[in-house]
Design a protein around this nucleic acid. Structure first.
Lengths: 220, 220
DNA sequence: GATTGTATTTTGAATAGTCAAATTGTTTTC
DNA sequence: GAAAACAATTTGACTATTCAAAATACAATC
C-alpha cells in the first residue's frame, strides 16, 4: 500500500518537522523532494485521505500516528543500510546516502533484522544520525552546533546533518567526522566565519552556515 | 530509463528463452509476470519501440543485444544478492528469491562490486544458478536432470531450477541441495515416479515433474 | 471447407505520479 | 487600506503500467 513515493513524502515530512517544529510548509516539502509545489499539494491531499498526515490547508502538514510509524520505519531502514554500506562493504561514508535512498524502499523486515544483528544493533549511522528502534523510538536529544556552542570548550562532533556529497566530502577532507575532538577558537559574526582547532592541533576556518550542520557535545 | 517493470520483462524473456529456445510466446511471458496477456503485448511493443526486443507479431519476442545486456545485468544483481543473503546474512536459501526480486532493482553497480568482492566472486548462487560476469557472460552449460539422467550412476546435484518456496522447501527437507550426492535407483514412467538414493543411504521418491527441476552432473 | 478452440492483439478505461500554468489567499510594505 | 510579493492550490494534460473485454488470427477437427 505504501509506495516508495509515499514513503519518501512521509520520511521527508518527518525530517523537516524535526527542525521547523510542528507544521511543515508545502514549499519546504516540495523543495526537499525536488518536485513543483503543486505536486506536493496534490500528494499531501492523497496522504491525508489515507490518514497518514493532517493537512492544514494553507498552513502545512503534520504526520499522524500512522504516518509517523511508516516514516520511522523508512528512516530506520535508511540509516541501517548506510551503516551496513560503510561498516561491512567499506564504502565511503560521504557517498552512501544516495545508495540507501534507493535500497530503503526495497529491503524487507526479515533482511533488515539480520542486518541489524550483523552490525551489532548500532544506535547511530556513519553520519551520527540516530537509528530508530524496531519499536519506532527515535533518540531526539538536542545538541548544540559548532555555530551555537560555547567558544574554547573542548567538544566532540556527534553528528553531521545535511547529506549532500559536497558537504560531506568537505567534512571528510578536513577530518570533521563524528567523534572527532574540536574546540572553537573564535567567531566572526559579521563575516559569517568561525575558526576551530582540532585535537591534532590543526586549525581551520569554515562558514557559520556550514558550522550549523555540525552537531557537537562537550568532550567528556 | 529502464524502470523496474522493464527490467522484469527483459529478465523474464531471458529466462524463458533459455529453455523454450528462441522466441518466447506472449502467453508464457504473461504467465511468468503474472499479468493478463494483453498487458504483455502492450509492454512488449513498448520494449520493441525502444530497441530492447524484437517482436515477431503473433509469434513471440526475442531480446536484442541491448535488451540482453540489460537482462544479464538484472540477473547478475539478483543472483549475487541471493548469495549475499545466504552466505553473509545466513538467511534460508529457500526464501531469498522474493527478497532478491525487489532488491535487484535498487542496488547500484558500486554496491554490487563490493558485494561481489566480499563474497569472493562466486560463480553460482545458492540454488546453483550461474551468475553472469560483469562483462555479461553467462555460463550456459547443459546438464541432465534427475528425470533424464542415467540410472544407477553416482551423481552430484548442481542446480535447482524453479524458485518457488514450496519446491525449494521440499528439496531442503529431503536434503536435495546443490552438491548433494545422489543415485537414481529407478523410474516408473507410467506412474510418473522416480526413486533415488542419497549418499547418506536414505532413499526417496519424487515425481518426474519435480525431478525435472533438479540438474545433475556425474559425481567426479 | 465450415466450425470450434485457443492464443494474440486491440481498445477503452483506470491508477499513481508528475509538470506547467492559471488562480486564489495571505502577508508585507508603503 | 491598496498594491506588490509570495506561498499555496487548482486545473488540465502527460507518462507508465495495468485490466477487462472485444476483435482478430491461426490451427485443429469433423
Amino acid at each position: 500500500m505504501a509506495t516508495s513515493t509515499v514513503e519518501d513524502y512521509l520520511k521527508q515530512i518527518l525530517l523537516l518537522s524535526e527542525d521547523a517544529d510542528e507544521l511543515v510548509s508545502m514549499g519546504a516539502l516540495a523543495t526537499a523532494l525536488e518536485v513543483v509545489p503543486g505536486t506536493a499539494t496534490t500528494m499531501v491531499k492523497a496522504l491525508a485521505a489515507n490518514g497518514l498526515v493532517d493537512h492544514h490547508l494553507r498552513h502545512g502538514v503534520q504526520l499522524t500516528a500512522a504516518g509517523q510509524r511508516v516514516a520511522l520505519g523508512v528512516l530506520r531502514r535508511h540509516r541501517l543500510i548506510e551503516t551496513f554500506l560503510v561498516d561491512v562493504l567499506k564504502m565511503d561514508w560521504t557517498e552512501v546516502h544516495p545508495e540507501a535512498e534507493r535500497l530503503e524502499h526495497a529491503i524487507s523486515d526479515a533482511v533488515l533484522d539480520r542486518l541489524d544483528a550483523l552490525l551489532g544493533y548500532p544506535a547511530a549511522d556513519p553520519h551520527g544520525d540516530p537509528i530508530p528502534t524496531r519499536q519506532g523510538k527515535l533518540d531526539s536529544q538536542v545538541y548544540a552546533t559548532l555555530a551555537t556552542c560555547i567558544v574554547a570548550k573542548p567538544l566532540r562532533i556527534v553528528r553531521l546533518t545535511e547529506q549532500s556529497g559536497e558537504f560531506l566530502q568537505f567534512a571528510e577532507q578536513n577530518g570533521l567526522r563524528p567523534d572527532t575532538r574540536v574546540r572553537v577558537t573564535g567567531r566572526n559574526l559579521p563575516a559569517g566565519l568561525l575558526t576551530l582547532k582540532k585535537s591534532s592541533g590543526r586549525a581551520l576556518t569554515l562558514s557559520l552556515a556550514a558550522a550549523g550542520n555540525i552537531l557537537v557535545a562537550p568532550a567528556k
